[in-house]
């Protein structure tokens, strides 16, 4: 059912766990089957310095989280915002059609984590500082 890349990421998921001093956290619950994926991000100099995830989901969800974090790490915030579920599924070498929605979890949770970070008060003051300086 799953290809080798997916199985590898399921068996040895990259970046699982939590970032205790995360800059932002995003959690998405899946309407299709009821699963959850949570993403932690650590932002440094407008870049994703670290990305970690946890999931309560199927094999495709575990692998998607692993691939998403791998792709997102090191990206700028703007680049990370562009990351789509298609990118994740593609990097995994494809997912079975009924499992494509699981890769949505990963990308959506990442975007939510970024939003969370952007909405934080310290971040807002940081932003206004940049704007004021600019």
């Amino acid at each position: 059912m799953y290809n080798e890349t997916v199985m590898d990421h399921f068996q040895n998921p990259r970046n699982v766990g939590e970032i205790t001093d995360a800059s932002g956290v995003g959690e998405i619950g899946n309407v299709v089957c009821g699963d959850i994926l949570r993403v932690y991000i650590k932002v440094k100099d407008e870049k994703l310095d670290d990305v970690k995830y946890m999931t309560f989901g199927c094999g495709a969800a575990v692998a998607s989280g692993s691939m998403m974090t791998t792709l997102a790490k090191g990206k700028t915030i703007e680049e990370a915002k562009e990351l789509t579920n298609k990118d994740v599924a593609q990097a995994l070498g494809g997912l079975p059609p009924q499992k494509l929605h699981c890769s949505n979890l990963a990308a959506d949770a990442l975007h939510k984590a970024i939003e969370d970070w952007q909405q934080k008060p310290e971040r807002r003051s940081e932003l206004s500082e940049i704007i004021n300086k600019g």
Binding site: P13, E18, D21, A22, E27, Y53, F56, V62
Partner: peptide
């Protein structure tokens, strides 16, 4: 369980 969001409540 080690990477389940349900087993690991959000602390941040």
């Amino acid at each position: 369980r080690s990477f389940s969001p349900l087993a690991n409540k959000l602390t941040v």
